[in-house]
Amino acid sequence: MADVLRSLRVFDERGDPGADCARVLGVPGVAVSLLVKADQGPESVWCFPELTGRFEDLQFTLGEGPGPDALRDGVPVLEPDLRLVRPERWPVLLPAARELGVLGVNCFPLGIGAARVGVLTVLCDGKPLSDQQYIDATALAAALTSAALRGDPVAGPGGLRRAAVHQATGMISVQLDVPVAQAMLRLRAHAFASGRPLGEVAADVVARRIRFHHEGEDRDDDAGGDMSGPDAPGETSPEDGRG
């Protein structure tokens, strides 16, 4: 862990910081998300393995889960066995997490006092973290907080993963003439209702395959149904690539 902490300044030049942290912590998966814009959700900057990234995307899409709670409250959220969590706490996330195969999650807020900069997510196999694992994860969270506040590059070789989401949110904000936070809610609702990943829907918005309207449902190329007439709910105009 000492080696990993010393390497934080050069994460962008290394192979896979998530894999290194998971190996050192002895856990199935690790992810780090940072707040890029205050009025939007945290941006996943690196994760290992793919399952962790899918769980991070799930939390981001739904806006609920241990990560959002840790970021909001500023305290670690430790749920080593999601089967024991009350269903009403995260009513949508829990069944989706079980479907993914995520057994337990521990989320550590990155920040100092009221200043929050992100979340460290540590998956587990249904058992609580050991004392040493908890100490190491806390040390990693503190080091990541310091790196983020200094402006050190911790995004890893893949860079930001949700650039399209932020761009799409801005476009929806303009289309609907609503605040960015409300535009993000509309984007999340569309992704959840369609059963598609948030990033995939965002990419369609950026590519103008989906356009949001005040009236009716927002529709895309895969939505089906009668799309005749320029005023059909959610239908895009010719300039949006529909012809």
Rank of each mutant, 00 (worst) to 15 (best):
L187C: 00
A223H: 08
V10T: 15
G111P: 03
A143R: 06
S228P: 06
T52V: 09
E99Q: 14
Q133G: 05
R150M: 10
A2G: 09
D20R: 10
V154Y: 05
D218K: 06
G67F: 04
S194V: 09
D152C: 09
Q182H: 13
A168N: 00
A31H: 04
D131K: 12
P76E: 05
D69L: 09
V180S: 09
Q40K: 08
L35T: 12
G41D: 14
V102N: 07
A181F: 08
V205K: 00
F60Q: 14
V36K: 10
A139D: 11
L58P: 02
I112W: 10
D73V: 10
L123H: 01
L129S: 03
G104Y: 02
P95W: 05
G241Q: 06
G18A: 05
D131Q: 15
S228F: 10
T52M: 10
F11G: 02
P80I: 04
H214Y: 13
A147P: 05
D218H: 12
V77M: 06
S44H: 10
L187T: 00
L84K: 14
G18W: 03
D131Y: 09
L176T: 02
H166P: 08
R98V: 11
L149E: 08
R161F: 01
V36S: 12
V85S: 05
A137Q: 07
S44P: 11
P68D: 04
V102K: 04
V206T: 06
Q167M: 12
E13Y: 14
G234D: 05
E43G: 02
A96I: 10
P197S: 08
F48Y: 12
V206K: 04
E56P: 08
E50A: 13
I172A: 00
A163L: 15
E217Y: 06
A137M: 03
V30C: 03
C107Q: 10
R188D: 00
E200S: 09
D152M: 12
L123V: 02
L110T: 02
R219A: 03
E239H: 13
V45S: 02
R86H: 14
R161L: 06
R186Y: 05
G151L: 06
D12H: 13
G243D: 15
H166I: 11
R23C: 10
L8G: 08
L140I: 12
A22K: 01
P17N: 05
I135K: 15
R23Q: 12
F48Q: 07
V206R: 01
I210R: 00
E239F: 13
P128A: 04
Q175C: 03
A202H: 01
R242Y: 15
L160R: 12
P87I: 09
R209A: 04
E56Y: 06
G151W: 05
I210P: 00
R86E: 15
E88Y: 11
A183V: 02
R72L: 07
L35I: 15
L187R: 00
T52D: 05
G234K: 04
G118C: 09
Q40I: 09
D136M: 08
V92H: 12
R54N: 11
L160E: 11
A114E: 13
L34Y: 03
V105Q: 08
C47D: 11
Q167A: 13
T236Y: 08
G224W: 00
R98Y: 14
F11P: 02
D152Q: 12
E43V: 02
R196D: 05
A189D: 09
A223P: 08
